[in-house]
């Protein structure tokens, strides 16, 4: 049985019939970390809200743990853990009271499932009498994860858990997810950060409600069809303009301090360098690189 199964799931909003989720089909295996990667407005949150029974789909089917999200919503509510993108615990209750409340609501106690949250909870335990609203962003995140875990869910849905969290906390957070995976919990996580994609077992690239690709991160980068080069010059703007005018290049775009340029076939690097110098660019550097998830995403979008 698949942990999560979506079968042409569709969600349409409002009078303008904006299609937020467009016939999305995918499966998540038990015990894997599945990433939903896409920009803001891609439909990630809508998918999460449908899977956690907060939103009714307008088409298609989906099941979590074999329970239908429409018919068997009551079962899903007692088995899954959900951490919304926005902090939604009681800010006027203390850390301990929040955790205790969500434990009792699911008919369990903190002690019963303490082993699940121990690693995370010890980090916030010294603030257990502080009100949740007075915690820092990273602490809130940890508390929210504890509350989503306290009833030992079979599937954990994390909607953009690392948005707005500093890089160190983000790294810690992903390590926690790996430990949870080791305990046999299926995790479905969404993120707009492409660099986090490689930390998932499998990812789905999603844009404008449509799935672009579902693969392991390795396979996605391996299947990048073109040759990719990172180019640098003193005048970045002129470089980008020159590259986009270069008709032998398949695609070019800014990527951090470099410009990435792709070619259908391998090229003579010196020829490209000469061409750029001819156009008056100085300090040209060029190297062949492996595609990242972000390159693959851009490539898929341009198609």
């Amino acid at each position: 049985m698949h942990a999560v199964k979506l079968d042409s799931l569709t969600k349409v909003y409002g009078k303008e019939k904006t299609v937020a989720v467009d016939r999305v089909s995918l499966t998540v295996e038990q015990g894997e970390i599945f990433g939903l990667i896409g920009p803001d407005g891609a439909g990630k949150t809508s998918i999460f809200r449908m899977l956690t029974t907060l939103l009714l789909p307008d088409g298609g089917h989906a099941s979590v743990d074999g329970f239908d999200i429409v018919k068997d919503y009551a079962f899903i509510r007692s088995t899954v853990g959900y951490m919304p993108g926005k902090f939604s615990l009681y800010p006027d209750l203390t850390v301990e009271e929040n955790l205790g409340f969500f434990a009792t609501v699911f008919g369990t106690t903190i002690r019963e499932n303490y082993h699940l949250i121990k690693d995370i909870y010890v980090q916030i335990e010294k603030f257990k009498d502080r009100r949740a609203g007075k915690l820092s962003g990273g602490m809130k995140q940890k508390l929210a994860l504890c509350c989503a875990l306290i009833h030992k869910p079979t599937v954990l849905f994390l909607d953009e858990p690392t948005t707005g969290v500093d890089p160190v906390s983000r790294k810690e957070f992903w390590e926690m997810l790996k430990r949870l995976k080791a305990q046999g919990i299926t995790i479905m996580v969404s993120t707009p950060y492409m660099d986090e994609a490689t930390l998932c077992d499998r990812i789905a690239l999603i844009d404008q409600g449509k799935i672009l690709s579902i693969e392991t991160p390795q396979n996605i980068t391996n299947s990048y069809p073109d040759k990719l080069y990172a180019v640098k010059a003193e005048n970045m703007y002129a470089l980008l303009k020159t590259l986009s005018a270069y008709d032998r290049a398949a695609d070019s775009y800014a990527f951090g301090e470099y410009a990435h340029v792709s070619f259908r076939e391998a090229i003579n690097e010196n020829l490209l360098k000469d061409y750029l110098r001819e156009k008056g660019l100085t300090g040209v550097e060029l190297k062949e690189i492996d595609a990242t998830i972000e390159d693959c995403f851009i490539n898929l979008l341009r198609k």
């Binding site: 907060l54 509510r77 007692s78 919304p84 609501v105």
Partner: peptide
């Protein structure tokens, strides 16, 4: 407004 109802709604309450 605070969003806590979201968290309550996914519980068996």
């Amino acid at each position: 407004e605070v969003g806590t109802i979201e968290q309550i709604n996914v519980t068996p309450i």
